[in-house]
């Protein structure tokens, strides 16, 4: 391996690593705030990439059916609860968010898709279609289980993963697709050639991470989410409801998942079930960060990207094995460092 190849591999690794970092952040965020190990994170990657691909081909995105269906289910859950507590004034808001919004988005997508309005609009539309699935999912599956143990939540998360993969096959079919590159530009920096695509991916990831950091440091809702992660009872006592923080983090996670899919779409062919494997790599990084540390998770994600890229050059058949084996020393180190597991509240 000469220097040029090494630089190319590192560039590839950093590019995919940046995407894993976004996923790792989403997984850490969801876990710290809700204690849910968010296995279905990967499905949002597939949904994001495949939706953008359909929009680029000018066909109506299949995700709209899932969106309308999930919204409808969430509406039923909400309505039953509202009527049970005689909160009739909440009905218009419930119908607006859970039925009106998805139907409006669906019409918008079906109307705009054949017009091929360009990459920018298509990306925004894809994200608008994928992101609301997060809060709906939280409402349907996790909100009723909010006080359950981590294990119960994990089992539910596994079930959601299996179900969403099935929906992916049903709505998008078994065919994979690759989206168009954001940029064909090439830059020569010394011996290395850096693609515009790589720069776009890394820049978007970086801006998003910075944005998230600012949200958590500066805004009230960001601070409320941090507070929930630090002390759930304390958060409830100041009026931060479990469902509000749950839905907010699921929205962020779905958005980050969908965006990761859009970023990775031009780099690899994405199938309905591809997201899971990609999500798992974000998961490895999140685990290295102990599911609580954002900076460690982000750095670990970049290193995993580089490790994956180098191992695909040296031993491509063992690429995944090498990446997932990397987690073992960290697990041993973490279990040696940590004391006996404490029960949660």
């Amino acid at each position: 391996m000469d220097g040029t190849i090494a630089l190319m591999l590192v560039q590839d690794g950093v590019t995919t690593g940046a995407i894993y970092a976004l996923l790792a952040l989403a997984i850490v965020l969801v876990f710290t705030v809700t204690r849910i190990i968010f296995v279905p994170q990967g499905e949002f990657i597939s949904f994001g990439a495949l939706t953008l691909s359909q929009l680029q081909q000018g066909t109506a995105p299949s995700i709209v059916w899932l969106l309308v269906g999930f919204g409808g289910l969430a509406a039923i859950f909400e309505l039953v609860e509202a009527l049970r507590h005689r909160r009739f004034s909440a009905v218009p808001r419930i119908l607006g968010w859970n039925v009106g919004l998805p139907v409006l988005l669906a019409f918008l997508a079906i109307w705009l898709a054949p017009l091929k309005l360009g990459l920018g609009v298509e990306i925004v539309l894809s994200l608008a279609l994928v992101a609301p699935l997060g809060p709906y999912l939280y409402r349907i599956v996790f909100q009723p289980l909010a006080e359950s143990s981590v294990l119960v939540l994990l089992i539910a998360a596994m079930a959601v993963h299996v179900a969403l993969t099935g929906f992916g096959l049903l709505f998008f079919g078994a065919e994979g697709s690759r989206t168009e590159a954001f940029s064909d530009a090439m830059f020569n920096v010394g011996p290395a050639m850096i693609t515009g695509q790589s720069i776009a991916v890394v820049a978007v990831s970086f801006v998003l991470m910075l944005g998230l950091y600012l949200i958590f440091e500066r805004t009230m809702i960001g601070k409320a989410l941090r507070a929930t992660a630090v002390n759930r009872l304390g958060a409830r006592l100041v009026g931060i409801s479990t469902s509000l923080s749950g839905r907010t983090v699921f929205l962020i996670a779905a958005l980050l998942g969908g965006l990761s899919g859009i970023l990775i779409g031009p780099l690899t062919t994405v199938y309905y079930d591809t997201g899971f494997l990609i999500g798992l790599k974000g998961f490895v990084a999140a685990i290295i960060g102990g599911l609580i540390s954002y900076p460690i998770a982000a750095v670990a994600a970049i290193l995993i990207g580089i490790l994956e890229s180098i191992s695909s050059f040296w031993a491509s058949a063992f690429k995944e094995v090498i990446v997932f084996t990397a987690i073992i020393p960290f697990l041993i180190w973490r279990s040696l460092r940590a004391g006996p597991a404490e029960d949660e509240e």
Binding site: K223, R226, A227, V230, N231, L233, A235, G239
Partner: peptide, 18 residues
């Protein structure tokens, strides 16, 4: 039940969340 990794001021500000 304080938010131990947040500042005194952030703890107080969150008290007025609602």
């Amino acid at each position: 039940e304080l938010f131990s990794t947040m500042s005194v001021e952030d703890n107080l500000t969150l008290g007025a969340f609602r």
